[in-house]
């Protein structure tokens, strides 16, 4: 049993309109497998019947559920490790020299189940240059389900195995039944909010650091370009943007320049580097 072309087209267009995620032909199986649980829960015999019903009624809550079911939430602690080392050794110390108010503002723009923003906070706590600093971290995602999980801060054994150093686990987590929960002192440092990257951003102020990792890959070129342009507008001129390992600004939005930071790279707004001439990190 596979999803019908009509149902696939409906889902593809819905997901694209709501999240900018592009589901290419060939992803029928993915769509089917992600929607089976929703179809069952709604009492439909199969995905086609469920989608047919959805396209007739267009209940906003149900449509949102479908979009959320098709996002990929894969993440891990200190994902790829190098960007977080660069944060601690290069980016944080560089910014610490230039912010006299001893405050850093950070945005994690597709935070999934929370590992990324919490990794950023734990990295900040491990950075001597930031001792006593105020870190304002706003973490956002499209998915309400992910935001609820993030706020709760509770992770399974399999999830804490993924990239979390054992010393960090014992320092910042406590057992919660079979799971592990990140300590409240860490949870309280992150503000989780709902935000769709493809829509105009709500007022958030300016950020010194933006994490936008492993989300642009799901968008088409015009959407990537538009998001990157709007990220520039909420970024301090000498700010730092982190992208995923498979993402780049080159050929998408060339107002960004790729700058090495330790064994990783960050993206910085070009004018900042040429006009100010000094602040690039190495």
């Amino acid at each position: 049993m596979t999803i019908s072309p009509q149902a696939f087209t409906f889902v593809r267009e819905l997901v694209r309109a709501e999240s900018a995620i592009v589901l290419e032909t060939g992803k029928e199986y993915l769509v089917e497998s992600r929607l089976v649980p929703l179809a069952r829960a709604a009492g439909h015999p199969d995905v086609d019947a469920y989608v047919a019903d959805l396209s007739k009624r267009r209940t906003p809550a149900a449509m949102k559920q479908v979009v959320e079911a098709l996002t990929t939430n894969e993440t891990s602690w200190f994902r790829d490790s190098d960007p977080f080392t660069a944060l601690r050794q290069n980016v944080f110390p560089a910014l610490a020299k230039t912010r006299s108010n001893r405050t850093l503002r950070i945005w994690a723009g597709a935070c999934s189940s929370g590992q990324e923003p919490y990794s950023i906070i734990m990295t900040a706590l491990d950075t001597p240059e930031l001792a006593g600093w105020k870190i304002e971290l706003v973490a956002t995602d499209l998915s309400e389900e992910m935001l609820t999980r993030s706020r709760k801060g509770e992770y399974s054994q399999l999830e804490v195995n993924r990239g979390l150093p054992a010393t960090t686990l014992v320092r910042h987590f406590e057992r919660s039944g079979l799971n592990w929960r990140i300590n409240q002192s860490i949870r309280d440092r992150v503000e989780f909010r709902s935000l769709n990257l493809t829509r105009p951003f709500p007022p958030m102020g300016r950020f010194d650091i933006v994490f936008l990792r492993n989300v642009l890959i799901y968008f088409d070129l015009p959407t990537k370009r538009d998001v990157l342009k709007r990220v520039r507008q909420v970024m301090a001129p000498d700010g730092h943007l982190f992208l995923g390992a498979a993402e780049m600004t080159m050929g998408v939005d060339d107002a960004w320049e790729r700058v090495p930071a330790g064994r990783s790279s960050v993206y910085r707004i070009r004018e900042a580097i040429t006009v100010r001439g000094s602040t690039c990190v190495h």
């Binding site: 490790s81 054994q157 195995n161």
Partner: peptide
Amino acid sequence: YLIKPFTGEAMLEKLDLLGLLPTSTG
């Protein structure tokens, strides 16, 4: 400290943390 059961990925991520992967490819 890696808790069983674990995935191959989790093991590689631990090795990466320990600096024991040939190249840190992420």
